[in-house]
Computed example of a mutant assay.
Amino acid sequence: MTRIDASTSLPAADFRAAADVRAEAADKRRKEKLDAAKQAVEALKAARIDTAAVQKEMARRKLEQIKEQIRLLKQTASMDPRGAAREIARLSRELASAVKAYASAGGSSAEVGPAPAAEASASSEAPTQDAAAGETSPATEAEPAAEEVPTAAARAAELYRQIQNAPEAQARERAREQREAEASDAADFIKQARALTKALKEILQKVAEAAKSKGPEGEKDVEHAEKALAEVGREIAFAESAMPAVLPTGLAA
């Protein structure tokens, strides 16, 4: 049997072509895997954002419910001081829970970072070379001044870079707008929570003495209300510290 020498049976060009095909197939598989991973990450981000939005909306609705109950409590507090103190404690606990839920929902996770160094280098070097080649004048034309060539190439490279980075810049702008919207929403939520806390404190101040006059049980009712109000204050302070990326500073009560 005649043995076929693989090294001489095919031209070198065919080996290179086969290697190129394999490399192209490998690159395609890597790209498909990368695209699938990106899609999975985007799906997770969307799910997280939807869950956070629902959680924040529920917290806002809870604040509205508490606001209405405080309005009714103001009208009846003097009739039953001890009952009013107990109601203040209950509403304070619900308010603290709503603030905690809002804070745990967090802010936006959409962050757009700079392009990887390798990609940035490639996108900036490639156009520079092309632009420099494009600026080379034919032999029949006058050669441009030596200092004009790098200037023209730099302009072409910058234009190319801007075109390449346009989608990324748009994504950064959308992320910035989303963070600003979250900051406004968070500031409004904290403002409302502080206002409700203040209203509960004012009611307690009006009924505390009358409730305490009912004896030790009345004193306990007032004490429980004070502790619940203090817990609201702690939750609000924690909410502010837990949302530094979206909540402006200086939101004093």
Rank of each mutant, 00 (worst) to 15 (best):
M1Y: 05
T2S: 12
T2V: 13
I4R: 03
A6D: 12
T8V: 14
L10I: 12
P11Q: 13
A13G: 08
R16Q: 11
A17R: 15
A17T: 12
A18K: 05
A19V: 09
D20G: 11
A25C: 05
A26V: 08
D27K: 10
K33Q: 14
D35Y: 01
D35G: 00
A36N: 06
A37W: 02
A37E: 04
A40G: 02
V41P: 00
L44W: 11
R48A: 15
D50Q: 15
T51C: 06
A52R: 10
A52P: 09
A53Q: 08
V54H: 03
Q55D: 06
M58V: 13
E64G: 11
Q69D: 10
Q75C: 04
S78G: 03
M79F: 11
D80Y: 05
P81L: 05
A84N: 07
A84K: 04
A85D: 09
R86T: 14
I88D: 01
A89V: 01
L91Q: 03
A96I: 08
A96Y: 05
K100L: 08
Y102M: 07
A103S: 13
S104F: 13
G107M: 04
G107E: 04
P114Y: 10
P116T: 01
P116D: 04
E119F: 01
A120C: 04
S123A: 15
S124V: 15
E125S: 15
A126V: 15
Q129L: 15
A131E: 13
E135A: 15
E141H: 05
A142Q: 05
A145T: 00
A145G: 04
E147G: 02
E147Q: 10
T151P: 00
A154L: 08
A154K: 06
R155D: 12
R155G: 04
L159R: 15
Q162W: 11
I163Q: 14
P167K: 01
E168W: 00
Q170C: 03
E173L: 13
A175C: 08
R179E: 01
S184Y: 06
D185Y: 02
A187G: 00
A187E: 03
A187W: 00
D188V: 06
Q192L: 04
Q192R: 09
A193I: 04
A195E: 12
L200M: 06
E202K: 15
I203D: 00
Q205T: 13
E209R: 10
A211H: 13
A211S: 15
E217Q: 06
G218F: 02
K220H: 01
V222A: 00
E223A: 11
E223P: 00
A225L: 08
A228V: 11
E231I: 07
G233P: 10
R234Y: 12
A237I: 04
A239P: 09
M243Q: 07
P244A: 05
V246N: 07
L247E: 01
L247K: 01
P248D: 02
P248G: 05
P248Y: 03
L251E: 03
L251K: 08
A252N: 05
A253R: 00
